[in-house]
Nucleic acid binder design. Structure first.
Length: 684
DNA sequence: TTTTGAAGTCTCTCC
DNA sequence: GACTTCAAAA
């Protein structure tokens, strides 16, 4: 069976270049593929999986770990197209999703009760807050880290395996003396999670590693599940994930990792690109393959990105090259202000679209989610459909979390975080009352029926009764085998919508978020799976501002640079390329952070196939204290070397306003901009 | 103890 | 400009 390349394998890898083929057809043992941007690393990985299947490895014995769910889906789809339907049996997903699956299957044997709820970051912060105030840090005594800070330190500690004391010393020196108290909070936090059957993101990885390392039999069993493990975006893994991989490979050592140290952009989450540099040391006898032939971009674009990354302190040096001659040099566009930037981008997009580039082949990238606000308004006004990736506001929105809290209480009656949230929604119940109700429930061992006997303060009587009725109704086993989840949400909304209307001045957009939640839920019959999926793979786009964009297929993509990793488009616009925005002023505290910002910009600029426009606004309105307007500088990364390889152009401003920018709607001479006149009038 | 209004804070990236 | 925190009133 494991015969060497029978004729069926020849066509399989025939369209790979020699290096790619070497990687795809590599046999057993550790393999490190260092692949520059656009060198076909996904393709290589896909072909490698296909080759393994072709060679006779059973698909369900292959595990493909990716960074996002989108990547997993895409790669498995491509595997399937290569090897047929058996390809769908390959296991794939993110580290967290895989950990979750294993924990649901084997967790009970390791002391994790089933039906645990997953805490997302916000929930974890809330619970940290509860732990914090339990220990009496609620009052404004001496300064003590906020719940968000505590959660950050905790998570950093778990993921990087750096002692808490060191993290405090390095990152938060003002709290060094609080170490004992901080540890105590973590202790309570951990204990509460256990009591309430809660699992946070970090636990998913930690428990996975724990099962492998601490439980001899279980570890044997789990590490024996797979014969081959392949990991994408290895530069963005952290020490804990590396530990998990070592555990998974302790018997066979068949591990393939792919990555590019020049594209490591998740240090803020504990990722350590030294993982990839040290891979050969961790796995002795590693074979290394380097991919440098870029198939994505034209040479002028590569000239610019090579110059950009040349100054980085990367260790695996690669110089990307292509044989795609021709193409325009990337454009460096100076805009008068944000409005000009927006107008330039929209005009260019419309022109490209008229010339035949579909909208979905165009993307606008930016450093942070909020930077696209002005653009979104303009796109909506011009009826250009778009989808926004990243900045996952949807799940973080208070009203969505509220509705989910009801569901989670139903799912896990011990879910303290969700109980707390639900209770405080009721009129007449605030922090103190909610807390006493929690104590009351704890004393009754979280018996789901006990809540009906709790005596609320008089003002909350009615709401309490309503809630009890609703929970009773929803807990009654439905007559049909499975009650549609969407029906449950609809029932919750009969109670919650009223609360929402009271709470917010403009409830409509929030109500439509809930409609969307209901719609998403309609596709998931099972409550537990739905809640887990929401936590692990949140819907990637928020509700669009533009109306009538639902069901559109040809959408413009707006994305944070982080969410754009691994993707490519014909044309890419990078906006807000101004110092302080990109690099973000908050990410310049030390040289390592600045380096990561450089790599992030490298990721952004290596996305386009044919056209790259880098835009920066000179005059920026800032709502911070001081001057209303200030002058922005071009991003420090676009230095002489980089700039010299770009065409310069200025957008809009006074010079080109009357005739509109090239490519825009020509002929219509514009004397005044009424939209402009209105915008900013009401302080927006 | 909850609610309300006003002052104050801080803007990110994601599983 | 949105969200949190704080102090005073109901």
């Amino acid at each position: 069976m494991p015969g060497n390349l029978p004729e069926s394998a020849a066509p399989l890898t025939a369209d790979l270049n020699p290096e790619q083929r070497a990687a795809a057809e590599f046999g057993d043992g550790p393999l490190l593929i260092v692949a520059g941007a656009g060198t076909g690393k996904t393709r290589t990985l896909v072909y490698r999986v296909a080759h393994l299947v072709d060679r006779g490895v059973r698909p369900e014995r292959i595990l493909l770990l990716t960074f996002t769910r989108r990547a997993a889906r895409e790669m498995l789809g491509r595997v399937e197209r290569l090897v047929g339907s058996t390809g769908s049996r390959v296991h794939g997903g993110t580290f967290h999703a895989t950990a979750h699956r294993l924990l649901r299957a084997y967790g009970e044997r390791a002391g994790i009760a089933k039906n645990f709820s997953i805490l997302d970051q916000g929930d974890a912060e809330d619970l940290m807050g509860i732990a914090r105030s339990t220990l009496g840090h609620g009052e404004r005594k001496s300064r003590f880290p906020k719940k968000e800070t505590l959660q950050f330190v905790y998570s950093r500690h778990v993921n990087t395996e750096i002692p808490v004391a060191d993290i405090l010393r390095e990152e938060l020196p003002q709290f060094v003396d609080d170490l004992p108290d901080v540890m105590k909070v973590f202790e309570v936090y951990t204990a509460r999670k256990a009591e309430r059957n809660l699992v946070d993101y970090d636990d998913l990885l930690l428990f996975w590693a724990g099962m492998l390392e601490q439980a001899p039999e279980l570890g044997e069993r789990i590490s024996g599940l797979y014969e081959h493990i392949l990991v994408d975006e290895y530069q963005d893994t952290n020490s804990l994930q590396a530990r998990v991989l070592r555990g998974m490979c302790r018997t066979h050592r068949n591990i393939t990792v792919v990555g590019d140290d020049a594209q490591s952009i998740y240090a803020f989450r504990g990722a350590n690109f030294k993982n990839i540099l040290e891979f050969p040391k961790q796995f002795e006898g590693t074979t290394m393959v380097t991919l440098e032939h870029n198939y994505r971009s034209t040479q002028p674009i590569l000239d610019v990105t090579n110059a950009l990354i040349a100054r980085a302190r990367e260790r695996f040096t690669k110089t990307l090259w292509t044989d795609r001659r021709g193409g325009e040099a990337p454009m460096l566009v100076t805009a008068h202000d944000e409005n000009d930037q927006t107008r330039y981008v929209v005009d260019q997009i419309m022109a490209l679209n008229e010339q035949g580039t579909p909208l979905r082949e165009i993307a606008v990238l930016f450093r942070a989610g909020y930077m696209s606000a002005d653009l979104e308004i303009e796109l909506a006004a011009r009826k250009i459909p778009f989808e926004k990736w990243g900045g996952l506001k949807f799940l973080e929105a208070a009203h969505v979390k509220d509705v989910l809290a009801f569901l989670r209480v139903l799912e896990n009656p011990r879910d303290e975080v969700s109980w707390y949230r639900v209770l405080r929604l009721l009129p007449g119940i605030g922090e103190a009352t909610a807390r006493s109700a929690m104590t009351w429930l704890t004393e009754r061992a979280w018996d789901p029926d006990a809540f009906a006997h709790w005596r609320p303060p008089p003002r909350a009587r009615e709401a309490h009764a309503e809630l009890v009725t609703m929970f009773a109704e929803l807990r009654t086993p439905p007559t049909s085998r499975i009650r549609a989840l969407a029906v449950e949400i609809a029932r919750i909304r009969t109670m919650y919508d009223g609360i929402l209307r009271e709470k917010y001045d403009r409830p409509e957009p929030r109500l439509s978020d809930l409609d969307q939640l209901e719609a998403i839920a309609a596709g998931h019959p099972e409550r537990a799976a739905f809640l887990a999926e929401l936590a692990l793979a949140p819907p990637s786009s928020t509700q669009d501002l533009a109306e009538g964009t639902t069901g559109e297929d040809d959408l413009l993509i707006l994305s944070t640079t982080h969410s754009a990793k691994g993707c490519e488009w014909d044309a890419v616009f990078l906006i807000w390329a101004a110092d302080g925005w990109f690099p973000s002023s908050r990410a310049l505290r030390d040289e390592d952070e600045a380096e990561e910002e450089r790599r992030l910009m490298y990721v952004a600029m290596t996305r386009p196939r044919k056209a790259l426009h880098v835009v920066f606004p000179v005059n920026v309105y800032s709502s911070r204290w001081g001057a209303d307007y200030s002058m922005a500088q071009l991003s420090r990364f676009i230095d002489v070397e980089v700039r010299g390889r770009m065409q310069r152009r200025s957008a809009g401003g006074h010079a080109s306003r009357p005739g509109s920018t090239p490519g825009g709607v020509s002929g219509a001479r514009q004397e005044v901009d009424l939209r402009e006149m209105l915008r900013g009038r009401f302080g927006a």
